[in-house]
Write a protein that binds this DNA or RNA. Structure first.
Ligand code: ZN
Ligand code: ZN
Ligand code: ZN
Ligand code: ZN
Ligand code: ZN
Length: 692
DNA sequence: GTTGAAACCGCCCTCTGCTGGATGATT
DNA sequence: AAATCATCCAGCAGAGGGCGGTTTCAAC
């Protein structure tokens, strides 16, 4: 039923359009980039945030407003006598608010709503501008000296007859303003209860007299100096984007969807209030007053209140009454007193009279200022916990803290058994059920459930100086502080029951020390024979060795039943005596050519041999292409043999390169070191190499 | 009736630390 | 090849700070 059109506010560059908005529905005008305003300016609620966004967006973040089609907010709307308002204003000449506009500069125009009684429109300003709108509303525009001085007044009068504002004033802060590039926000227009003929409008999406503003926040999901700010995704499509109070707090008005409801609610409340008021009067009549001695004590029937004076009781009874005659023009909320209404309206307009002397903060109420000063400046914390040293600025914080002592969890999840100690934790918990990940990394678009998690991610993944946490005990560097905690617990915590090293008798109360100690066993011959001084690195070597003490010979030749302690010895035996195809390696003396079955014997001979030959080694068995042994293996085997210190005249080595085949290996004289020349391969070495 | 202070409720944020799955290195 | 282990990493809850806004109440 309602139609909407969008305008980019930045495109609204004419004073007429601005004033039309004022006339039509009354708007807040906001935003100032110019920090050189004469005094801390009053900010419309959310204006700062919105402006920050716009600034961060570098012009990209559009703020647009939505207005009714054919409304009097049309920039081309005509004023009296068909003359455009802008024209009238210019001719009126009184509103010299726009000196040379500075390109790209924005100014804040404050707005305040006040009640005006009859006759209070006699404004004292020097420059007044009287405007009669199409709808007959009389406006007085004044350039005032005081911040709070009304500038625009929509008078009671003709407008009231037409269900238009009964009294709205707008004040503009002193200073130089341009209406170029203004950004316009909304105000609701109070529609008093004379709306019988517009009753049906109440059920509409948009209440009458409302100007809706669409805030394009699609660019809100911006990282700001490394920080990513993210609004919860809108699940209900773009329509709600138009006016969601939650999302767009910048709009000091309720969400579009809520608007009609709240409007209706308000009417209901008003009607109910009347009834309740009479109820209250009844109860007041019934209020008891009892004598106590000479003095009368008046008791409230509805609560424990007592007073010696009837007037006090009467006053008190109003606290039980729902009578709230003071209605906010902006959101239609009602209040008992003018003060309450004023404070409330200040929250709309951002008027913050209470300024902190120690910082730039300003507040609507003195209580907020006092609390702020306690938090930030005096650090006074009057609420002390009786169970610990905790103290807080606010009682509610102490109350919340007490729950950490009592374990009380009043807030239950309706989807699982979780219960939290405060509302926020429950709300945060509910995200785990929805699967929502509201926070997105501005670098890699990874999504996270909590802002803190994302912050850590950005710090660890996308920061230049990635902080690392060094363990004070072992100098290990760990990426996350929490993981350092895990490290400390796992490796450096004190173990009440000492752990024994599996290789020796050493005891350790710290896991890290045990691990370090075990490493010292790594290259030692930790397998020791208990019957002799024999020691080796591998347990199976010890098993073979122990057979020398037990006499056990588990390997039996199938041909001659001869027994051997080692399988390799059996193999050598078999080939030598039972395999006719076997051709043993012969080591020839390089000087005289005499052959030996063992290199050591040949070498011993050659040292005393006077003849000279060119070739040192003869491969009797075709070993072409068989020399695949890697250097490492060769070294390992030799070293192992050296380590073992037991040299045997065995010339067979089974390597992984040769599969199961036993291949004779000859170390040439030329390449051998003196140590290698003395090295002989043991069965242990064979076993070891088979492992490898 | 008005006013200011205090009390109160609520929301959102950060910092913190634990948890368990994934992963790569070592045994 | 499998087991073990330390670290990486995101998920998630505990605790507390700070502020927005309203209500209550006594004094004026
Ligand atoms: Zn301050
Ligand atoms: Zn405590
Ligand atoms: Zn749950
Ligand atoms: Zn990222
Ligand atoms: Zn040990």
């Amino acid at each position: 039923m309602w139609s909407w059109c969008e305008l980019n506010i930045r495109a609204m560059r004419s004073l007429s359009s601005f004033l039309c908005c004022l006339l039509g529905q009354v708007h807040l005008v906001m935003a100032s980039q110019d920090s050189a305003l004469p005094e801390p300016f009053t900010k419309i609620k959310g204006a700062e945030r919105t402006w920050d966004k716009a600034r961060e967006d570098d012009g990209g973040g559009k703020i647009s407003w939505v207005k009714e089609r054919n409304s009097i907010c049309d920039p081309d709307a005509e004023g009296l006598n068909g003359v455009p308002l802008a024209k009238q204003l210019e001719e009126g000449g009184n509103l010299e608010l726009s000196p040379s506009p500075v390109q790209g500069e924005k100014h804040l125009i404050m707005l305040q709503t006040v009640h005006l009684k009859e006759g209070e429109d006699e404004l004292q300003g020097v420059s007044q501008l009287n405007i009669q709108t199409q709808s007959g509303v009389h406006m007085v525009v004044q350039r005032g000296a005081s911040v709070l001085q009304p500038l625009v007044v929509v008078q009671q009068g003709v407008g009231a007859q037409q269900n238009l504002p009964t009294g709205v004033a707008i004040s503009i802060q002193d200073g130089v303003y341009t209406f170029h590039d203004v950004e316009v926000m909304q105000i609701n227009v109070l529609q008093e209860k004379v709306q019988t003929k517009d009753e049906e409008n109440l059920s509409l999406d948009k209440p009458p007299g409302m100007l809706l503003i669409k805030i394009d926040r699609s660019k809100d999901l911006h990282a700001v100096e490394g920080k990513v700010q993210q609004l919860p995704p809108n699940e209900e499509g773009t329509e709600k984007d138009i006016f969601t109070a939650e999302k767009a707090k910048i709009l000091s008005c309720k969400a579009k969807d809520d608007m009609s409801a709240s409007h209706c609610e308000h009417k209901e409340q008003e009607e109910q209030a009347v009834i309740k008021n009479t109820d209250a009067l009844e109860t007041q009549k019934n209020t008891q007053h009892r004598k106590k001695g000479k003095k009368m004590i008046f008791h409230c029937d509805l609560c424990a209140f007592t007073s010696l004076r009837m007037s006090s009781l009467n006053r008190h009874m109003k606290t039980h009454s729902d009578e709230k005659p003071h209605v906010c023009h902006l959101c239609l909320k009602a209040f008992r007193t003018v003060t309450l209404l004023r404070n409330h309206v200040n929250t709309h307009t951002g008027t913050r009279p209470y300024k902190c002397s120690d910082c730039e903060m300003a507040f609507v109420t003195s209580g907020e200022l006092a609390r702020h000063r306690r938090y930030k400046h005096t650090l006074e914390k009057p609420f002390k916990c009786s169970m610990c040293k905790y103290s807080s600025v606010e009682a509610s914080k102490l109350k919340r803290h007490i729950r950490s002592h009592t374990g009380e969890r009043p807030y239950n999840c309706y989807l699982c058994s979780y219960a939290s100690k405060d509302t926020y934790k429950l709300k945060r918990h509910m995200v785990t059920h929805s699967g929502e990940k509201p926070y997105e990394c501005y670098v890699c678009q990874a999504r996270f459930t909590q802002s803190g998690t994302m912050k850590i991610h950005i710090l660890q993944k996308h920061s230049e100086n990635v902080p690392r946490y060094q363990c004070p005990h072992c100098n290990t560097f760990i990426a996350r502080k929490s993981d350092l905690g895990v490290h400390l617990r796992n490796l450096h915590s004190y173990l009440t029951v000492a752990t024994k090293c599996c290789y020796c008798e050493a005891l350790f109360h710290e896991r890290y020390a045990l691990i370090q100690h075990k490493k010292t066993h790594r290259n030692e011959k930790r397998f020791k024979c208990d019957q002799c001084s024999y020691a080796c690195k591998q347990e199976r070597h010890l098993i073979v060795h122990k057979r020398t003490h037990t006499g056990e010979k588990p390997f039996t030749c199938v041909c001659c039943s001869k027994c051997f302690r080692q399988k390799q010895l059996l193999t050598v035996h078999f080939r030598k005596y039972h395999d006719s195809n076997f051709k043993p390696m012969v080591y020839e003396c390089p000087k005289c050519g005499k052959g030996y079955s063992r290199w050591s014997n040949m070498h011993k001979h050659s040292e005393s041999c006077g003849l000279v030959r060119a070739k040192s080694v003869t491969r009797r068995k075709g070993s072409k292409g068989k020399k695949k042994r890697c250097d490492r293996l060769k070294h390992d085997v030799k070293q192992e043999a050296v380590d073992l210190g037991s040299f045997q005249d065995v010339s067979f080595v089974n390597t992984e390169c040769c599969a199961s085949e036993i291949v004779p290996v000859v170390y040439g004289i030329e390449t051998s070191t003196p140590m290698e020349q003395k090295t002989e391969i043991t069965c242990e070495m064979i076993l070891n190499m088979m492992d490898k």
